[in-house]
Computed example of a mutant assay.
Amino acid sequence: MRKGSSLLYVKIVTAKGKRYAYFDTGVLNPSGRKIYKRLPPLGDPAFGATYAALLAGRTRRENVATELTVPKLVDLFQRSPEFRQLAHSTQNTYGIYLRRIADELNTAPAQEVERRDLLMLRDKMGDRPGAANGMIRTARALFGWGRGREHVTNDPCSGVELFASTDHAPWPEDLLSAALASADAAVRLPVALLYYTAQRIGDVCALRWSDIRDGLVIVRQQKTGKELEIRVHRDLAAELERTARRSITILADPRGRPLSVNALRARLQRFAEAQGHKVVPHGLRKNAVNALLEAGCSVAETSAVTGQSLQMVEHYAKRRSTRRLADAAILKLEGGKR
């Protein structure tokens, strides 16, 4: 870049009659702005040596960045302390999309990835908008980390918009009732745990028998790190009472090993499809939020059970039954009359 100067990457700024030289390092700050280094005054004997050192450093970084492929950048990211400090569930989610990014851009120099490359990846997943958005969010984290470590200077995710995606719907009432009354304990028990604790599927799969004590379910959420103490619902208590303990975890596979999230998700989706519904287990979290609110719980009380923010509780509650709320309101009005 020559801007008021014949020297590469140097710009000259005139202020109050004086001229100041700044070197464009080729690095962006977290806000996406270029980072400039102040050079010694023009004519200063130290000017030439300082400029040469900065130019060599920029050239070296650009050469390394050009040679650094996307798979290598992914590997560096996953080995980094920043990645390892993420919640285990977040690492798993990022891992899924990082593998896809590395596979799709397996020979591309990380420094040369452009916005159109990310748009192409996003559009190829257009039939799964939620997954496409997850991939873009992961790419943002990857390249944001890469810029912070000066492995790259580009931001190919800039201006790549997320797809408008629909939230996971709560389970229809008939499906929820059928699951809670199912003759198959392999369906009935996990649905009861998901519904009566209002937790994510990963947290439910991780629940141990030792987490049930003094009438409480003790949950440490994998995503947030929050520890919750949730009163055991009487129907869940009855379900747990009739369940044989075959593993340290409450949910176990036929061999007595802890049940994986993928296995449970597939099992519950098969059950739902057999009932004529297409749902995901996460929808039960919304059923739980709605049930708590419809039962008269405040947003704060509901948040204390789910571990969500007050704003997220309200977001999840968008599909609550307005008929039930209206019925409850009229009953309260009738009860208040003298």
Results as ranks from 00 to 15, higher is better:
336 G>N: 14
187 V>L: 04
93 T>Q: 07
42 L>I: 15
164 A>T: 15
125 M>W: 09
56 A>S: 05
279 V>C: 00
166 T>Q: 08
14 T>H: 07
77 F>H: 06
217 V>E: 01
310 L>P: 03
236 L>A: 05
329 A>C: 14
336 G>K: 14
303 S>E: 06
221 Q>I: 13
95 G>P: 01
245 R>V: 06
202 G>K: 04
235 D>R: 13
316 Y>P: 02
261 V>Q: 04
150 E>R: 10
80 S>Y: 02
310 L>Q: 11
217 V>T: 06
98 L>T: 08
194 L>A: 12
99 R>C: 09
278 K>P: 00
282 H>Y: 10
90 T>Q: 04
89 S>D: 03
41 P>V: 14
291 A>E: 06
72 K>L: 14
252 A>N: 02
134 G>L: 01
209 W>T: 09
320 R>Y: 05
144 G>C: 09
38 R>E: 05
107 T>K: 14
52 A>W: 01
78 Q>W: 06
227 E>V: 15
46 A>I: 11
270 R>W: 03
265 R>H: 09
189 L>V: 15
298 S>D: 13
310 L>W: 08
288 A>C: 14
230 I>V: 15
246 R>I: 05
305 V>L: 06
81 P>V: 12
192 A>I: 07
262 N>T: 15
12 I>K: 05
322 T>F: 08
198 A>M: 13
227 E>S: 15
238 A>C: 07
129 P>T: 10
214 D>P: 11
8 L>V: 13
323 R>T: 15
250 I>F: 00
146 G>E: 00
52 A>H: 04
228 L>H: 10
322 T>G: 06
124 K>S: 13
126 G>H: 12
198 A>W: 02
225 G>Q: 04
267 R>I: 10
9 Y>D: 02
129 P>C: 09
